[in-house]
């Protein structure tokens, strides 16, 4: 097919226009971090430093599924952050763990920083069957230990998952409870016991 010169130049003009439009779209977006710094004020324990993203947070803020290369980087960085319990003991007291799982306070500007934070597990997960006020953002953890047993690998995996959820699932919605110092090592052990202890309500 031979193209008329006019059609060719029209096509060229259109593609040039397309390029200009693309260039316009690619011009720097409003700097969201800067706008946030100007739009928030420090209050209580929540300073403006809370608005500064780490690499993982930034990679998970696109509103689109994370790409394989970025995903691999997130997993590597977060895997490296996991610290096993100093004494090698993964399991604490499930009764204390249930309290951690029920409590949603901690780290909000309205919270007393001197009081321990909760894990608020029930906000997103089903756990003990008797607790019907559970959320559905995360998967059900009912019978967690009963279904999986208490072998070293599953204990190690679950500890790491609680410590840093992004070590396994890039851009997981779950907070990184150990990595971000939300829960103490003892609290993490107690939640582990809630998940694994045979007498824990989670496994009834």
């Amino acid at each position: 097919m031979t193209q008329h010169p006019f059609i060719r130049s029209l096509a060229l003009a259109i593609s040039l226009f397309g390029l200009t439009a693309q260039a316009a779209a690619a011009k720097p977006e409003p700097d969201v971090a800067k706008v946030l710094q100007q739009s928030f004020k420090e209050k209580g324990q929540a300073g403006l430093d809370r608005l500064q993203q780490d690499e993982t947070q930034a990679a998970c803020s696109t509103g689109k599924p994370v790409q394989p290369e970025a995903a691999a980087k997130i997993i590597a960085t977060n895997q490296a952050s996991v610290r096993d319990p100093a004494d090698g003991q993964y399991l604490g007291d499930w009764k204390a763990g249930e309290k951690v799982a029920q409590s949603g306070t901690g780290r909000q500007f309205s919270d007393d920083p001197a009081k321990p934070s909760g894990g608020n597990c029930y906000a997103c997960h089903q756990m003990a069957e008797k607790e019907i006020a559970y959320g559905t953002i995360g998967p059900s953890l009912k019978h967690y230990g009963k279904l999986r047993g208490t072998s070293e690998p599953i204990l190690k995996y679950t500890w790491a998952k609680l410590y840093n959820a992004q070590a396994f699932m890039p851009c997981s919605l779950m907070p990184r409870f150990g990595h971000k110092d939300i829960l103490t090592e003892q609290q993490l052990k107690d939640v582990m016991a809630l998940l694994f202890d045979a007498s824990s309500p989670v496994n009834q």
Partner: peptide, 27 residues
């Protein structure tokens, strides 16, 4: 962009709770 901006101690954004249908927090 702000809706999807994850930050802070808990890595939360608006989208953490409000970008999927049929979910609930507690009840």
């Amino acid at each position: 962009q702000i809706f999807h901006y994850r930050s802070g101690t808990h890595d939360f954004s608006c989208a953490t709770c409000h970008a999927e249908s049929g979910k609930r927090i507690r009840l």
